[in-house]
Amino acid sequence: IRCIGVSNRDFVEGMSGGTWVDVVLEHGGCVTVMAQDKPTVDIELVTTTVSNMAEVRSYCYEASISDMASDSRCPTQGEAYLDKQSDTQYVCKRTLVDRGWGNGCGLFGKGSLVTCAKFTCSKKMTGKSIQPENLEYRIMLSVHGSQHSGMIVNDTGYETDENRAKVEVTPNSPRAEATLGGFGSLGLDCEPRTGLDFSDLYYLTMNNKHWLVHKEWFHDIPLPWHAGADTGTPHWNNKEALVEFKDAHAKRQTVVVLGSQEGAVHTALAGALEAEMDGAKGKLFSGHLKCRLKMDKLRLKGVSYSLCTAAFTFTKVPAETLHGTVTVEVQYAGTDGPCKIPVQMAVDMQTLTPVGRLITANPVITESTENSKMMLELDPPFGDSYIVIGVGDKKITHHWHRSGSTIGKAFEATVRGAKRMAVLGDTAWDFGSVGGVFNSLGKGIHQIFGAAFKSLFGGMSWFSQILIGTLLVWLGLNTKNGSISLTCLALGGVMIFLSTAVSA
């Protein structure tokens, strides 16, 4: 259960009878995928790494000078000259100064003066180019299975845990398959586009800190620079940016070097996208990844198990997540596992009318040892309800109150669905055939309105939902006002479609 501690969480529900669903994975976010007769899966884009970055340009932001020398000439005696002028490691300046009897010249006039100092770069920052084909995306998957609280967001041991898996995709191999043991396998067909235009970005490294910066900004930095990788004795261009020549006297000129420019660069980098280094690879934390999940090989585990009949206890007080759902960790005293956990939410304890829904599909106890633990997640209705676990006299209950409203949740879900469709863009549509167009249209309606429909009408039977949709269509056909007619027709059509397409 990876997503319960992530604030940016998206719930995606598969269409009834569908074998695939489109998701948008982004750094700092987590996606929970639910479908009829399929286990619930949490998917998170953990890291995006980039390798084989080529150094484009380096800037010196802290330097020192040494070996200063000057040469001067009297008027009419030609130009002052130093051998160091031809050495690229030196920074030199030529000027004219007033000369006369007082400073060793027989004539009054302008004399030539040249001053040089050896330039040494102490600290530099480097910009590297990123090729999209060198990106690698690491995705962690977790099935809502027989897990306890100690396994949440624990990325170790996934090789031997059938509840978890790690997959890596690249532009050259965008397809992967996550093996989930008894739950089958989940196929991923990803489109490795981060949403960032790397043709316009460089990877900047300064003092063990890293950013993504725009090329134009990078090339306009007014500091000494050299092109390409460091060859040991780089040729620094624009050395004068960190060196200041003071007022010249008759035979000498003082040279000083400016202080470190790291603070000024940090100020200019305010708002830039931060990154990290992992050995020789860069780690990015921006952008998104679009994936199509193929769920035809994914299956529920323990459908044929019998119900657990022994007593359950709450190991922890049920807690609310950031998303309005409830996490419950229970301990089973029996030894008759594997068995299914009898769990439901009810409005009252007399009729036990089921409300809400299970995020953890078909929760089971897989071990036959005593005191096995299991964590599950529920989506309670707004208002008061009861969490009921167990059967008969051994069942345990917990009162729950959820604040908020169904309308607010439906609106929030619609906005999130619209954002998801905007990110998917043209990849969500198939114009290759008439059937493809209608299929894409259905998927689009489901992406945007599916979660809201589930919130508003999830407790009704599909037949009642179709009746309401048919009534809206009838009202649309018999209303003389054009805008009201079109609105009723659209709402009725969407409702009829979703009542037959969205899983219960």
Rank of each mutant, 00 (worst) to 15 (best):
A333E: 14
D22C: 05
S405A: 01
S405G: 10
A418K: 08
S86E: 09
P75L: 11
A418W: 11
T315Y: 14
G408N: 11
K118H: 02
I130M: 13
L441T: 02
C74D: 10
L242N: 05
A69H: 10
H249Q: 07
T233V: 12
E159K: 08
I466D: 09
P380E: 11
G459P: 04
R357I: 05
S464E: 04
G232W: 00
W217N: 10
L424G: 01
L298K: 04
G435A: 15
V255D: 01
M15W: 15
T406W: 08
G5Q: 05
I466Q: 09
H288F: 06
F382R: 03
A176C: 12
R292H: 15
D189G: 12
Q350F: 04
V473R: 00
S129K: 04
H323K: 05
I1W: 08
S112T: 15
F438E: 01
D197Q: 06
F285K: 05
W101Y: 06
Y59M: 11
Q344N: 12
E370V: 04
V167G: 01
T156A: 14
L300R: 01
K409H: 14
A270Q: 14
S440N: 07
E162Q: 12
Y137I: 04
V326K: 04
G417H: 11
K480C: 07
K373S: 00
S372G: 15
P222F: 10
D71M: 12
F314W: 14
I359D: 07
V347W: 13
G450R: 07
G100M: 10
T48P: 04
G232V: 15
Y332V: 04
I139P: 00
M140H: 14
A428R: 01
V364D: 00
V415T: 06
Q331I: 14
A428E: 01
G404F: 11
F457A: 12
G482C: 14
Q147V: 00
G337D: 12
A248P: 14
L475S: 08
G184L: 02
F411G: 02
P222V: 11
E55N: 01
C121M: 09
G324T: 08
V391F: 14
A241F: 14
S260K: 08
A333R: 12
E136V: 09
L352D: 11
L45D: 11
T76D: 09
K118A: 13
S142D: 04
G17W: 07
Q253F: 10
L284C: 13
V423G: 00
L96R: 02
D98F: 09
G334P: 05
S7H: 00
L489H: 09
S372F: 01
N207I: 12
V12D: 07
C3V: 02
N439D: 12
V97A: 11
V317A: 11
S70D: 07
G106H: 02
R402K: 12
H398K: 00
K340G: 04
S70A: 11
E262A: 10
I43F: 10
F119P: 06
T427M: 13
K290E: 09
V243I: 10
L223D: 11
L107S: 01
V41I: 08
T170G: 03
D22N: 09
M53A: 01
P380T: 01
A319V: 15
G469S: 15
R57N: 05
L186F: 11
K281E: 08
R57C: 04
A80R: 05
C60I: 06
H288L: 03
N103A: 02
W429L: 06
E216G: 08
G337A: 15
H323T: 07
T156Q: 11
V46Y: 07
Q261M: 12
T267E: 05
C121N: 05
R402F: 11
T366L: 07
K394L: 08
M125P: 01
D71T: 05
Q331W: 05
V265K: 13
L25H: 06
L107P: 14
W462L: 11
K118Q: 14
V415Y: 11
P132S: 14
H323I: 05
K443H: 14
L352P: 14
A35Q: 04
R292G: 00
K316G: 01
C121F: 11
L300S: 11
A501Y: 09
C190G: 10
L284D: 03
D71Y: 01
P224F: 09
N52F: 02
V169I: 14
S199D: 14
S146N: 08
S433G: 00
L135S: 00
R357P: 02
T327M: 06
A54E: 06
C339Q: 07
D42C: 06
D71K: 07
H144Y: 13
L273T: 14
L441Q: 11
D247K: 02
C339M: 10
Q344Y: 01
R99I: 03
G150W: 14
E244H: 06
N103K: 08
A272S: 13
L258N: 10
E377R: 00
G408Y: 09
C92H: 08
D42W: 10
L96S: 08
E370L: 04
V24T: 03
D161S: 13
A80I: 12
I448G: 06
G334F: 04
K128F: 06
E262T: 06
R99A: 07
K290M: 07
G100N: 07
C92W: 13
L180A: 06
L273N: 09
P75H: 03
Y90I: 10
P354G: 13
A275F: 02
D200H: 05
T170S: 04
F108N: 06
F438W: 03
I468E: 03
W236M: 10
D71F: 04
V169Q: 06
S58Q: 12
V143P: 01
D426C: 06
G435W: 13
G111H: 04
L289Y: 02
S403M: 15
K281I: 14
T160Y: 02
E329T: 14
A264K: 11
V33H: 05
S485I: 08
G334D: 06
V257D: 04
S483E: 13
K283W: 04
K290S: 12
K409N: 00
T414N: 08
C190Q: 09
V24E: 06
F312D: 08
I341M: 10
E177I: 07
N52V: 02
S483Q: 15
M206T: 12
Y59H: 09
G450F: 10
R175N: 08
H214R: 10
V328K: 03
